[in-house]
Simulated assay, not measured.
Amino acid sequence: MNRRQVLTGASLAVGAAGFMLTLGWWRSGGQPMTGRDLLPIPIRDMSFSLTDHNGQPFAPSQWLGRPTMVFFGFTFCPDVCPTTLNDISDWLADLGPDADGLNVVLISVDPERDTPTILAEYLSNFDPRIVGLTGRLTELEKAAADFRATFEKLPRDGDYTMNHTAGVFLFAADGQFTSIIDFHEDRRFAIPKIRRILT
């Protein structure tokens, strides 16, 4: 690699870092953001209220005492969501009985279409340990804010789709955030991350 390539690469890295810092500044309303502001808050401090795919009310405190995996998605998603849910189902199969100790959750970002009944039908295609949550838009916005996740409704071909954060969030049994599994992350790296929250 010659000097020009090194300088070009360094310039791109600095530019990307500057963009992320500017984005962080904008999202915080002009206030400096710390590393802590970019991480999900502990589960014990979350306060949203949703409904599970069986029609039962849900509060985040119900997750405490067990490690937790959370993914944001929606049932009309054409690719990212079913791919991730298939990955999660495979990870749970790889973990065997150890996976029975996990909370595994899909939070819908599409309250207009994703009723508990629709979620239940959709999740029947994946591992039965995955629980679906839905609810009022205001509560889903609170949930996303607690996770430092984002979602937005985008018009498409006379209908709409949802753009959303695609990682799988991992929390220890005490509710502390530990790590995230990126979309399409190799199972060689995903499984050890999950095992860490199980122990």
Rank of each mutant, 00 (worst) to 15 (best):
S11N: 05
R187K: 14
R196A: 15
D100S: 14
L170M: 08
V104C: 03
G55N: 06
W25S: 05
A173D: 13
P32N: 05
A144Q: 03
M46Q: 15
P82G: 05
P78Q: 02
S61Q: 14
D37M: 08
L106N: 04
P116S: 01
F48E: 09
N2L: 03
D37I: 02
V105P: 09
T138K: 13
L140G: 10
G101L: 02
A166I: 13
T51E: 10
P82E: 09
C81S: 05
F171R: 02
L95T: 06
I107D: 04
D159M: 09
L133M: 12
L154D: 05
E112C: 06
I130H: 06
A59Y: 03
L198T: 07
G167K: 09
I88M: 14
V70I: 13
D79T: 10
D45S: 13
I191C: 01
R136M: 12
Q176P: 01
M33F: 06
N125D: 11
V70H: 08
K153R: 15
E112P: 05
I197A: 10
V109Q: 06
L170E: 10
R3Y: 04
A190C: 02
R129G: 12
M46Y: 04
G96P: 01
F151E: 01
H164G: 05
A144I: 04
T161Y: 02
F19R: 00
L21R: 07
A145K: 15
K142R: 15
F147Q: 11
I197L: 07
A143F: 05
R129S: 14
C81K: 01
L106W: 04
L12M: 12
R188N: 12
T34V: 00
S11G: 15
A166T: 14
T199S: 15
F74D: 02
N54R: 11
L64H: 07
M69Y: 03
I197H: 02
E185R: 04
I130G: 06
N103W: 09
V109R: 10
E112W: 08
D37E: 08
F71R: 03
H184Q: 15
G73S: 09
R187V: 11
T150A: 11
P67S: 05
T68I: 03
M1H: 11
F189W: 06
A120Y: 04
A13C: 12
A16T: 13
G35R: 13
L95F: 03
L92H: 07
W26L: 14
T34Q: 10
K193L: 09
E141V: 14
E112F: 05
I181S: 04
A190D: 01
S124R: 09
P155Q: 10
F48T: 09
P116R: 00
T165A: 13
T34Y: 00
V70L: 11
A166F: 02
L140D: 09
R188H: 11
T34F: 00
Q5R: 14
R188L: 12
L12C: 10
T117A: 15
L7P: 07
F189M: 08
T83P: 02
N163L: 12
L154G: 00
N103A: 11
L123G: 08
R136Q: 15
G55K: 06
S28M: 12
G15D: 00
E112D: 15
L85Q: 07
L21V: 13
G158S: 08
